[in-house]
């Protein structure tokens, strides 16, 4: 038994070492650095809770935090509804369904930077594909990229592009819903809407909870697409998110200690929101084993 454990540990050692060196150590180090003045190029000097105290009066941090929360509030429900809708469509019995599933999943494989560049063209105010369509419909299109009132909405819409991952998980969840429940609903005379509300969504609720929690974590870390599409959080910091602020402090302003504090505050906020989601889920998530 001891020998098996030793051999097992030896085989797991590359992963364990990788975890300790590249994940556990940086995480703990960043906690320490968050209490220091650290510019990478100099030895860190201990400053107590100064960095955290500064965050309380940092108006740019507040703005970035509000932007991030607004984005999460918009993007997570939107992506959830779209992903569930697509999963339901792709759960129907239609010829060639495996091709459709692949097609709808493919966009989520596009790298974030390529995605940002692609959407710069699609959302271009003058000759963008989207505004061409809106104009063709006889409407006055907004300036998606240049108007502070629209810039966050633009990013929320773009977030739907990557909902393929969640869609696949919803699809797997849908296929696990017992057919007998739908048959029972049919016998009771339930229409499609009622069946979705009373059968599909309750049975899918654990999957929804998982995806929503992952969505919240992802939305709070949004970085690559706004970094490519809206340099500096333009216009007027309307797309400046916490991850952008963390990056700027760490790599542009050489304030690694302050950036670490931003990261830890963000971690606590993410943790609290996740706990809140789990708490709320107590009443709304139905587990088959219950």
């Amino acid at each position: 038994m001891k020998k098996d454990l030793r051999i097992g540990l030896l085989f797991a050692m590359p992963w364990i070492l990788g975890f300790l060196i590249f994940l556990a150590y940086p995480v703990l180090a960043s906690l320490y650095y968050s209490f220091t003045n650290f510019s990478i190029l100099r030895e860190p000097s201990y400053v107590g809770i100064d960095n955290y105290a500064e965050l309380t009066s940092d108006t740019v941090f507040h703005q970035a935090l509000i932007n991030t929360l607004i984005y999460a509030v918009g993007a997570v429900p939107l992506s959830t509804v779209v992903a569930i809708g697509l999963a339901m469509l792709l759960n129907s019995k239609v010829k060639g369904m495996s091709y459709y599933r692949t097609i709808f999943f493919l966009p989520s494989l596009v790298p974030m930077v390529a995605l940002g560049t692609l959407f710069l063209w699609i959302f271009n105010g003058d000759y963008g594909l989207l505004n061409e369509g809106i104009r063709a419909a006889g409407l006055e299109p907004p300036n998606w990229l240049g108007d502070p009132a629209w810039s966050k909405s633009t990013l929320m819409l773009i977030s739907m592009w990557g909902c393929g991952q969640a869609m696949v998980i919803y699809l797997a969840g849908l296929q696990n819903v017992p057919v007998s429940l739908y048959e029972a609903a049919d016998l009771d005379g339930a229409k499609l809407g009622r069946k979705i509300w009373n059968v599909t969504l309750p049975m899918l609720s654990p999957v929804i909870l998982f995806n929503v929690v992952m969505g919240i974590i992802g939305a709070l870390q949004v970085f690559a697409v706004p970094y490519v599409m809206f340099p500096g959080g333009a216009p007027a910091r309307s797309t400046y998110f916490i991850a952008s602020y963390l990056f700027d402090n760490a790599f542009q302003y050489q304030r690694m200690g302050y950036a670490s504090a931003v990261g830890w505050v963000m971690f606590i906020i993410t943790l609290l929101l996740t706990m809140l989601a789990l708490k709320i889920s107590d009443r709304h998530v139905h587990y088959e084993t219950e």
Partner: peptide, 10 residues
């Protein structure tokens, strides 16, 4: 709005 829209097409 006109400036923003105009520049959006640059």
């Amino acid at each position: 709005k006109e400036v923003q829209s105009f520049q959006g097409g640059f």
